[in-house]
Design a protein around this nucleic acid. Structure first.
Length: 423
RNA sequence: GUGGCCGUAGCUCAAUUAGGUUAGAGCACCUGGUUGUGGUCCAGGGGGUUGGGGGUUCAAAUCCCCUCGGUCACCCCA
C-alpha cells in the first residue's frame, strides 16, 4: 500500500491547513462585503463544457485535463477552472437569478501538468464572476475586490498589470496585422513561436526567448489597435482604477491563454515568488463565453485567485500565517471521580462557548499538563482529590504559571471573564 | 507534456568520492527524574525493506537499468 498521496496532490495539515481555512474565511468576508453571493458548481462537468469554452487548441484542454469515462460512457472532466461552470449554471438558471449576477466560489481545481512548487495537480481557487453587465465599472469592481483581498492577507509586494485584448471586432484585424509584421522574420523565431504564429500569435510578444528581439519589440500592440468601443472601455476601466486609488501597470504584452477572454485582462503578480508561479490572480472579461456555450450573448467579467500561491506569497513576504486560537481551557483530572467531574466541566465550558477539551483516558497529571500545552490551551483547570474534597477547582494560566483556586461552581465564570484574573 | 538536478528516521542531514563489520547525529516523539503541575534542564527509550523493483558482485545506501516521487526551468497557467 502506497501511503504517499497521488502525484501533484498533498495533504494539508495543521497549522497550514488552518492558514488555508483562514484564506477561505477571508474570501467569504470580502466577497460578501462587495455584494457577491456564494455558489457551488460540480467538481466535474461534461468534457465538452471545457473544450468549447477554452478552445480545443488551448494547453489546458489539449494536455492538462483530467478526463475520464463514467459507467455510462459519458466523457467527464474534473474542473480545470470554474468560470465556464458558473456561466453554464447562470444560463440554465438565469430566470431565477438577479441581473447582474454576482457570484463567487471556492474550491479545488485540477490540471494534469508536471508538478512543481506553486503548480500542483489539485489547487485551490477563490473566484468571482459578474455576469450580465458589460459596463467597465464591473471590471473595476472585480479588480478592486481582488486587490482588497490580497492586501487583506498582508501581501504588499504584489503588483497589478492590466491590458485590453480587444474583442471580436478588433482582435482578428490586429491579429492579422501582427502576423503580417512577424511573418518576414519567421525564421528568426524560436520553434515555439513559429507554432504560436499560427495558433496564438499574441503569445509571441511575451515569449521569453523572442520577446526581446528587435523586430518583436517593434511589433504593433493590441492596445494601439482597439476598435472604438474597446478603446473607450479600456479607458474607462483605467479611469475607474485611478478613481479607486488602485495602483496598476499597463502591460501591452499581457495576453490570455483561454479563448473566451475579451477586452480587459489583468493579473496580480507576486514579487517574492519565482516567475513560474508568480501569478497569484488572473482574470478578465469574457463577453463571448455565453454564446460559445450556446446561450444568448451575455457579458461577464471575473477573476480566479490561486490560494495555494497566496499562501506561498505570504510566506515569501514573511507575513505571519493566521493560526486559530487554541483552547481556552484544558481540563486535567486525576482519578475516576475527578474525570467524571471533568466531563461535566468541559460540557459546561463548551455550552458557554469556550473551546475546551480533556484527556480521553486516565493519564498521569504530567502527561495531561503536556497535552494542555500542546493543545495551545490558555488555561488548565485541575480537578484532583483535593479539589473534589473541598468543592473547588484549581485554575492555572499557562503563559505565566499563575494559579488560583475557585469554588467549583465559579470556574466557568472565571474562565469567561478573563479580566477578573489578577495574580 | 519536454529537459536538468535530487530521493538515507516524522524533519534537517552524515556515511556514497576509490562498494566491505549491528546505517549515525541533531531536532521532534514517548517514558522517567520519590508518590498533584506543561513550556527549560538531565537520563533512558521507540523509530529506517537507505522511495520501489530488477541487475552486477563473495559483499550494494554506495555501481548499472527501470519505475515512483520531489524540485527547478520550459510549455502554460492560478
Amino acid at each position: 500500500m502506497e501511503l504517499a498521496p497521488p502525484r501533484g496532490t498533498a495533504d494539508l495539515l495543521p497549522p497550514r491547513a488552518e492558514a488555508m481555512l483562514a484564506l477561505y474565511e477571508s474570501a467569504h468576508r470580502w466577497a460578501r462585503l462587495f455584494g457577491f453571493r456564494y455558489l457551488e458548481t460540480p467538481m466535474f462537468e461534461h468534457t465538452e463544457l471545457f473544450s468549447r469554452a477554452a478552445g480545443a487548441t488551448s494547453d489546458v484542454v489539449s494536455k492538462e485535463m483530467y478526463t475520464f469515462l463514467d459507467k455510462g460512457d459519458r466523457s467527464l472532466t474534473l474542473r480545470p477552472e470554474t468560470t465556464a461552470s458558473v456561466v453554464r449554471a447562470y444560463l440554465t438558471n438565469a430566470h431565477d437569478l438577479p441581473l447582474p449576477f454576482k457570484g463567487y466560489y471556492l474550491g479545488s481545481q485540477f490540471r494534469h501538468g508536471r508538478p512543481q512548487a506553486g503548480r500542483t495537480r489539485e489547487f485551490r481557487q477563490f473566484g468571482v464572476e459578474i455576469i450580465g453587465v458589460g459596463a467597465p465599472d464591473a471590471d473595476v469592481e472585480v479588480i478592486a475586490l481582488s486587490d482588497a483581498y490580497l492586501r487583506g492577507q498582508g501581501l504588499l509586494r504584489t503588483t497589478l498589470v492590466v491590458n485590453s485584448i480587444g474583442d471580436a471586432e478588433c482582435r482578428p484585424a490586429y491579429r492579422q496585422l501582427l502576423i503580417d509584421h512577424l511573418e518576414p522574420d519567421r525564421d528568426d523565431l524560436c520553434d515555439d513561436c513559429q507554432q504560436r504564429l499560427r495558433s496564438n500569435p499574441l503569445r509571441v510578444l511575451d515569449c521569453k526567448v523572442d520577446g526581446k528581439k528587435a523586430f518583436v519589440l517593434a511589433a504593433p500592440m493590441i492596445s494601439d489597435h482597439l476598435c472604438g468601443p474597446c478603446a473607450a472601455h479600456f479607458a474607462a476601466v483605467r479611469a475607474g482604477l485611478d478613481g479607486a486609488g488602485i495602483d496598476y501597470q499597463h502591460d501591452p504584452r499581457l495576453v490570455r491563454g483561454l479563448d473566451y477572454y475579451t477586452r480587459t485582462a489583468f493579473e496580480f503578480v507576486s514579487g517574492v515568488l519565482s516567475e513560474a508561479q508568480a501569478t497569484v490572480c488572473g482574470g478578465g472579461r469574457y463577453d463571448g463565453l455565453a454564446e460559445v456555450l450556446g446561450g444568448p450573448p451575455t457579458p461577464g467579467v471575473g477573476f480566479a485567485l490561486g490560494l495555494d500561491r497566496v499562501l506561498l506569497a505570504m510566506e515569501g513576504e514573511g507575513v505571519e500565517l493566521p493560526s486559530p486560537r487554541g483552547l481556552r481551557c484544558f481540563v486535567v483530572a486525576v482519578g475516576e471521580q475527578a474525570r467524571a467531574a471533568a466531563k461535566t466541566l468541559v460540557a459546561e465550558l463548551r455550552a458557554a462557548g469556550l473551546p475546551s477539551a480533556a484527556a480521553f483516558e486516565e493519564r498521569p497529571m504530567k502527561a495531561q499538563m503536556k497535552m494542555a500545552d500542546r493543545a495551545d490551551a490558555a488555561f488548565v483547570a485541575i480537578i484532583g482529590e483535593r479539589e473534589l474534597a473541598e468543592g473547588v477547582i484549581t485554575l492555572k494560566r499557562l503563559v505565566d504559571g499563575i494559579q488560583k483556586t475557585v469554588p467549583a461552581g465559579d470556574a466557568v465564570g472565571w474562565l469567561t471573564r478573563l479580566d477578573d484574573w489578577t495574580p
